[in-house]
């Protein structure tokens, strides 16, 4: 029986954001924008969706008088990401590590 792929993660940009955040402690919005090559508007919308789901934490502040948005993955987000990867392995029939 195949597990269903989390629809929240099964989207190109949201999955990219989560994959990026899983491998770092925290990252600035501008860093994520650069690495995913997304537009600020779209990235902002997708980050809000991930935040609403509790998958990431977003901290807004200031750095050198400029607004700064810091994102980090939450424990719930790590769990969801791991579940997504497991489900993906089932679909692709990969042996589990």
């Amino acid at each position: 029986m195949f597990e269903e792929l989390d629809p929240l993660l099964h989207s190109q940009l949201r999955l990219a954001v989560m994959s990026l955040l899983i491998s770092v402690r925290e990252a600035e919005f501008t860093y994520i924008k650069e690495k995913t090559q997304a537009t600020a508007g779209n990235l902002s919308v997708q980050i809000s969706k991930l935040k609403e789901a509790g998958y990431i934490e977003v901290e807004k502040g200031f750095k050198d008088n400029f607004p700064q948005t810091l994102c980090r993955i939450s424990p719930k987000g790590i769990e969801a990401f791991e579940k997504y990867v497991k489900a993906l392995q089932q679909y692709l029939n990969l042996p589990k590590p």
Partner: peptide
């Protein structure tokens, strides 16, 4: 990375690898 169309599973894997890399 603006495409919101449904992903194929192989594509998901490629995104994960690419971002971690």
């Amino acid at each position: 990375m603006e495409n919101q169309a449904p992903l194929r599973q192989e594509e998901s894997l490629r995104i994960i690898q690419q971002m971690i890399e």
